[in-house]
Amino acid sequence: MRIGLLSDTHGDTLSAEKAIKAMGDIDLLLHAGDTYADAKALQDVFGIEVVAVKGNTDFYCNAASETTIIIEDKKIFLTHGHKYNVKFGIDRLYYRALETNSDIVVFGHSHVPTHVEENNMIFVNPGSISRPRGGSKPSYGLINISKKNIDIKICNL
């Protein structure tokens, strides 16, 4: 299964649309928050399934702040990351992922693309297509999951 990753779009749906077109054929889009409404608009435009969580700027949003999904026997934990202080490291996020027994963690909030493997657990932040930070460029992510392999890519827009 080919999964697109976005986070921290902050209302820039035009850049998000460019990113999704650049992703090619995807089976699913994960949006790690800020802005939840963008994720739902993208679902309508592209007619693809979108799983999204709210972020710290989604003030009046009733959506969940985290969720898990299972794809090809791999559990993916999706969260924005602000509740786990990800701007200062992934320790708290790592322990939450252990609690959820996750294989892959997709998060945002820092606007900095990240791909780290820790004790057989994969952490990926696609960065931001609208407001990159830390010297990064506008970016998105891709995950290809099969029964035998997980391939992660972070791509510049």
Rank of each mutant, 00 (worst) to 15 (best):
Glu118Cys: 00
Arg2Ile: 13
Cys155Gln: 01
Val106Thr: 06
Val116Glu: 15
His115Lys: 09
Ile145Cys: 08
Cys61Lys: 01
Arg131Pro: 00
Tyr94Lys: 09
Asp25Tyr: 07
Ala32Asp: 03
His31Cys: 09
Ala32Met: 04
Asp151Tyr: 08
Ser7Asp: 06
Asp91Tyr: 13
Ile104Met: 05
Ile143Glu: 06
Asp73Gly: 05
Ser136His: 12
His10Leu: 05
Arg92Glu: 14
Ala64Lys: 12
Thr100Trp: 05
Ile104Gly: 02
Pro138Cys: 09
Met121Ala: 03
His10Trp: 08
Ile129Leu: 04
Asn62Ser: 01
Phe123Ala: 10
Glu66His: 02
Arg131Glu: 13
Gly127Tyr: 07
Ser136Thr: 10
Asn119His: 13
Lys21Tyr: 09
Val45Ala: 14
Glu72Asn: 10
Ile76Gly: 01
Leu14Gln: 11
Leu5Ser: 11
Leu98Trp: 07
Gly55Ala: 08
Ile48Thr: 08
Val45Gly: 01
Gly47His: 10
Ile20His: 02
Lys18Tyr: 08
Ile90Pro: 00
Asp91Phe: 12
Cys61Arg: 01
His111Gly: 09
Met121Thr: 05
Ser102Leu: 05
Val105Asp: 01
Ser146Leu: 00
Pro132Gly: 12
Met121Arg: 09
Ser136Ala: 15
Val50Ala: 09
Asp91Met: 11
Gly141Asn: 02
Ile20Phe: 11
Ala97Gln: 02
Tyr84Val: 03
Gly89Asn: 14
Thr100Cys: 05
Pro126Lys: 11
Ile71Met: 10
Phe59Lys: 04
Lys21Ile: 08
Tyr94Asn: 09
Ile90Ala: 09
Tyr140Gln: 03
Asp38Thr: 13
Leu28Glu: 10
Thr9Asp: 09
Arg133Cys: 00
Phe59Pro: 02
His80Glu: 05
Asn149Ser: 06
Cys155His: 06
Ser7Phe: 09
Ser15Met: 11
Cys61Ser: 12
His80Tyr: 13
Ser15Asp: 06
Asp38His: 14
Glu118Leu: 09
Tyr36Gly: 00
Asp103Ile: 04
Tyr60Ala: 08
Asp34Leu: 05
Ser128Thr: 07
Asn149Pro: 02
Phe46Leu: 13
His109Gly: 11
Asp34Glu: 04
Ser102Ile: 00
Leu78Glu: 02
Asp73Ala: 12
Lys40Gly: 09
Gly55Pro: 02
His10Gln: 03
Leu29Thr: 04
Ile122Ser: 03
Val116Ile: 15
Ser146Lys: 00
Leu6Glu: 02
Ala16Lys: 01
Ala32Ile: 06
Ile154Val: 01
Thr9Ala: 12
